[in-house]
Each structure stands twice: as structure tokens, then as C-alpha cells.
Simulated scan of single mutants.
Amino acid sequence: MTETPEATVQATEYEVSILPEDDINRPLFVITVQYRGEGRWAVTRHGSCLGTDGQWEFGIKEYDRGDAWLDAHRFDLDTALRLAREAAPHVICNGHTALDAYRRTHPTP
């Protein structure tokens, strides 16, 4: 009888936002950090991908891009999470940033 290999578990996606998990606006302002293989992660939001230059560029499919583009839009996990955290307050939806949304729903006393 052939032995069954042990199942492996791997995290492949993180959500990054300045809005709390239970905030009704959170889904509109979430940035996703997704594993893309070979130790490389993409920082994505609504079909766009964050580059090393801090700019969002439409198109996240690896087969659509060359190696130079991928090198500018794929990161090790620590770098991807840092970039996502830095970008999180500035995500825009309907002309408002995530920080605007946070301040509207979580006013300081």
C-alpha cells in the first residue's frame, strides 16, 4: 500500500487596510497581497498592481508582462506588506481616500 503524503498548508493572500475588519467601508479600500510563486508577492487592488515606483498599473496577470515588468511589480513578502501598508491610507474610492473613510466612521473624541 502506498503511503499518503501529509498535506501542506500555505498562506497565499493577505488583506491590508486601515479600516477595521467590521467597518462597512472596508471592502472598498482593501489592498491584497497575493503570492505569485517562487517567493514573489504582488500588491493588488481591483485589477491593478503596485510597482516599485509607488504607482498602480492595470494588469496583474504574469503572462501579460515581461520579466522587467514583473521585477518591478513582484516582491518578497516583507517588502510587499510594507508597500501595501504605506499605500493603504491613500487608496481612493469615489473620490475619497481610506483615511477620509476612517475619519468619517471613527471620529476622534
Rank of each mutant, 00 (worst) to 15 (best):
G37Y: 00
D67K: 12
D71F: 04
D71G: 15
R45T: 09
G59L: 02
D67F: 02
I31H: 10
D71C: 13
R65C: 05
R45W: 02
H46L: 11
D71I: 13
V43F: 06
G37K: 04
T52A: 15
G51I: 07
G54F: 06
Y35D: 11
D64M: 08
R36F: 02
I24E: 14
E62G: 03
Q55S: 08
G54V: 10
F58N: 00
K61R: 09
R40E: 11
L28C: 09
L70G: 08
I60R: 03
G37V: 00
D53G: 05
G59W: 02
Y35T: 04
Q55P: 02
F29R: 04
G51N: 10
T44S: 10
V30H: 06
C49M: 12
V30G: 09
W56C: 03
G59S: 01
D71P: 12
N25D: 15
L50Y: 03
D53A: 12
F58Y: 05
L70M: 14
T44C: 14
Q34P: 05
D64N: 08
L28T: 10
A68M: 07
G51A: 14
L50V: 02
G66W: 00
R45H: 12
W69G: 15
P27L: 04
G59M: 02
D71V: 12
W69T: 15
G37C: 03
F58G: 00
E38I: 01
V43Q: 14
Y35N: 11
Y35H: 11
L28N: 14
P27W: 02
T52C: 12
Y63L: 01
L28Q: 12
L70V: 06
V43T: 07
G51W: 05
R26S: 10
Y35M: 02
D53Q: 04
G59F: 02
A42I: 01
E62V: 05
G66V: 05
I60E: 03
R40K: 15
R65G: 01
R36I: 09
D23S: 12
Q34T: 14
R65P: 00
E57C: 06
N25G: 13
S48Y: 06
V30R: 13
K61A: 04
L28R: 11
D64G: 03
T52N: 14
D67M: 07
G66L: 04
I60F: 00
G54R: 13
V30F: 07
G51E: 09
Y35V: 04
W69R: 15
G54T: 10
H46A: 12
T52R: 15
S48P: 01
Y63N: 02
C49K: 09
C49A: 14
K61N: 04
A68G: 04
F58R: 00
W56K: 09
R26N: 11
D22M: 08
R45L: 12
G66D: 15
L28H: 14
Q34I: 09
D22F: 14
W41G: 07
D22C: 05
R26P: 08
I60G: 03
L50M: 14
E38F: 01
Y63D: 01
I24M: 12
D53L: 05
D64Y: 03
V43S: 15
E57Y: 11
G54L: 13
V43P: 04
L50R: 11
I31T: 07
D53R: 03
D64T: 05
I24K: 14
G47M: 06
A68C: 04
R40S: 13
